[in-house]
């Protein structure tokens, strides 16, 4: 007898995505889709897609969706959730979207304690527009708008969003995971599940930052991109749970000393 042992989650559409080879958006979409299936909330979920590589995410999920303008997904999600608190609302955003143009929206959404979930994909670069410097671009990392590498004297240091958001007093669940290896993916999925679980229970705002690769704009083959993420990004962007709604379990790893 043939048994199905692996299939696409119902929450994901049966389509081919436009993402580049080696990009981990597809993996992160899948984790979100699996969690929506497992929690049984697909029928009452509304996603909000950003401007960036995942602008077409509404084609890839089998849920209702809103397409937000650049950076405003947390505000759009706020509107949806306040209008219909029974819906499960998530915003899916990249680092240019969330940490640059949308900094105001994410901080205030978190601070109001909106009962939504934010999936924040940090690949340290602008992808869709062609590899420009992001607020999360690493020091000395080359991008099309910093061809000599990011100069921290001029552009400042990369912004650590999980740390920033977890500094707010309002209860929240804030965590950082990575998507570059199967082991890290298992950890990321557990965090994403926990984030949605808090929303289902009506507990708090939740955000999971997921480190991601961009082989195309980093100019690296996928396997080397995975290594680059681990060696260059992870020391600066430590993984872990930064904040939980009960105030316990707040155990970020110590930040590396700035040179």
């Amino acid at each position: 007898m043939i048994q199905t042992v692996f299939q696409k989650p119902d929450s994901l559409a049966s389509v081919i995505t436009h993402y580049c080879p080696g990009c981990t958006h597809g993996v992160i979409h899948r984790m979100v889709g699996e969690v929506l299936d497992e929690l049984g909330v697909r029928d009452r979920t509304v996603g909000v897609s950003p401007v960036g590589c995942s602008v077409l995410a509404y084609n890839y999920f089998e849920t209702d969706f809103h397409e937000a303008s650049h950076g405003r997904a947390p505000a759009v999600a706020t509107g949806i959730k306040r209008a219909r608190p029974d819906l499960i609302v998530f915003a899916y955003q990249g680092d240019g979207d969330l940490a640059s143009i949308g900094m105001g929206e994410i901080i205030h959404c978190a601070n109001r304690g909106e009962k939504i979930t934010v999936i924040f994909v940090n690949n340290a670069i602008y992808g869709m527009t062609g590899g420009q410097m992001a607020p999360t671009t690493m020091p000395n990392q080359v991008a099309t708008t910093c061809p000599m590498g990011r100069d921290v004297e001029q552009a400042g240091w990369p912004i650590r969003m999980a740390e920033l958001v977890s500094a707010l007093r309002t209860p929240a669940y804030v965590a950082r995971a990575s998507s570059h290896s199967p082991l890290h993916t298992v950890q990321a999925k557990a965090m994403i599940r926990r984030a949605f679980q808090y929303q289902v229970e009506g507990t708090c705002f939740s955000m999971v930052e997921v480190l991601s690769t961009c082989p195309t704009n980093w100019g690296l083959p996928p396997n080397e991109a995975d290594r680059w993420l681990e060696e260059q990004m992870m020391p600066y962007y430590p993984l872990g749970v930064f904040k939980t709604p009960d105030g316990r379990d707040r155990a970020p790893k110590p930040l590396p000393a700035d040179e």
Binding site: H66, A68, R72, G79, I80, K81, R82, G104, E105, R112
Partner: peptide, 26 residues
């Protein structure tokens, strides 16, 4: 009903956009 004081008019109008999408009067 629900009253939300947004952090800016940019955010307020995008909240309007989200809420209107659910079909409620905003």
């Amino acid at each position: 009903g629900t009253f939300v004081q947004a952090e800016s008019e940019v955010a307020a109008s995008n909240m309007l956009y989200g809420a209107a999408g659910t079909g409620e009067r905003v």
